[in-house]
Design a binder for these strands. Structure first.
Lengths: 115, 115
DNA sequence: TATACACTGAACTAAATGGTTCAGTATTTA
DNA sequence: TAAATACTGAACCATTTAGTTCAGTGTATA
């Protein structure tokens, strides 16, 4: 039995699994933005956009600050370092697996015969 | 208005957002495995494990093949290239944002005064 | 001061997730 | 051939997700 515990990366990968939220990150990469401007850009209600931003905030990817009546969203200092690390480490695993010769042979042997 | 279309990366990030599924990838990195052996290792019913494997399969991260009565799971040839690319490209966006001097100054100025 | 603006929270919805049990089917093995 | 093994599918469950509407609150502006 193995226990895998890693609370925060769950949240960031989940946050990144939605195209709207990835789009928000793109957008904030071009400059800070209010909830209203993001809601306009992604054709969504204010409330809907607020929820997306909250998901990104909980994942640490975005930070927000409300001054006056407008809440400004920007990219979080946390960044994507942990995610990049996980992906890179495991990308090597994938590659290593395919260097085994018999893998390649059996790959060639079936070519879509699978169930 | 901006439309962000990217069907497959949604599936892989969603697949990676679960610790059990990341664990399955670790495990398959060490060698191919049956549904039963994975179910044992992660203390889960066969049916539950089958679902996790299906999620990984739909994301292209794992391929399976049934021979006789055992279904063998292995890492998919698709790999994590697209994900690595997305993450790397955006990691730079994050970093670029923090190179702006006024960002750093305003970061210093508040230090946890946020809402 | 009255109006418009930007957000917020509660409540609701439909669908997806992560898990289960139970009842099979197909394949080995004794 | 009988029993054990490995999986499969349907059905169910509680929770989360992605969105909505509606009714506010607080802030800026005319």
């Amino acid at each position: 039995m193995v226990q895998y515990l890693s609370p925060p990366i769950d949240l960031s990968f989940a946050a990144l699994s939605d195209a709207t939220r990835r789009g928000i990150i793109d957008e904030l990469g071009r400059g800070d933005a209010s909830i209203t401007s993001l809601a306009d850009k992604f054709q969504m209600t204010l409330t809907g956009m607020k929820k997306h931003v909250q998901v990104l905030e909980r994942a640490g990817l975005v930070v927000t600050q409300k001054v006056g009546r407008v809440r400004t969203c920007k990219l979080g200092k946390r960044g994507l370092g942990a995610e990049a690390e996980w992906i890179e480490a495991h990308r090597k695993l994938f590659e290593a697996r395919f260097e085994a010769l018999d893998e390649i042979i059996s790959e060639m042997k079936q070519e879509g015969s699978d169930d």
